[in-house]
């Protein structure tokens, strides 16, 4: 009875030693150990840059997007004030032009890269992945170019 209570703390498996000095346990290689087959540098690849970009752009977008929402939806009468004249007033200032431009590029690249991850996760057939990513990149380039063009060519005296 006493042997049972003392060995219970150790457990049945750990209690028995299968190995000793003459018969050592096999060595298990640590999971991410550098071996001869590991590339010399595992840094500086595209996926790591993308991962870092998601975090850096995220921090900047907090200011840009939440500031944008505050200006458009909360301050100065909320949505009710928005119209052509309002936009003309905003884009008369280079400060807001740069703000919107930065927000456009960062949000589109951040969102597109996020969607790339989502496509990679769920679309399993190579053809589906190709088409979805082709569509995604086309829409992204189109939106960024259109938005940039609109900011730079805005004309308050269009009519």
């Amino acid at each position: 009875m006493s042997t049972e209570t003392t060995s219970a703390a150790v457990g049945p498996v750990e209690g028995v030693t299968l190995y000793d000095a003459g018969n050592p346990a096999p060595l298990i290689e640590p999971p991410r150990k550098r071996t001869g087959k590991t590339p010399r540098s595992t840094r500086g690849n595209f996926e790591m840059a993308a991962w870092l970009f998601m975090r850096l752009s995220g921090v900047v977008l907090v200011v840009l997007v939440l500031g944008h929402l505050l200006l458009q939806l909360v301050l100065d009468g909320g949505v009710s004030k928005i119209g052509f004249a309002f936009v003309a007033g905003r884009w008369a200032s280079p400060f807001w032009q740069v703000w919107d431009l930065l927000m456009l590029w960062l949000a589109m690249l951040h969102g597109a890269n996020g969607l790339r991850t989502v496509v990679n996760d769920y679309a399993e057939r190579p053809n589906t992945r190709l088409w979805l990513k082709g569509l995604l990149y086309t829409a992204t380039v189109f939106t960024i170019l259109l938005g940039t063009l609109v900011i730079f060519t805005f004309d308050p005296n269009i009519r």
Binding site: G83, F84, A85, V87, L104, A107, M108, G111, A112, G114, L115, V118, A139, T143, L146, G147, L149, V150, T153, F154, D155, I158, R159
Partner: peptide, 23 residues
């Protein structure tokens, strides 16, 4: 939410582009 915001942004840039069509 990330996917939703992305789709919104796509439409949002299109509607803002109307300032280049006419007031």
């Amino acid at each position: 939410t990330g996917v939703l915001i992305f789709f919104f942004l796509f439409v949002h840039v299109l509607d803002t582009a109307l300032v280049r069509v006419s007031p």
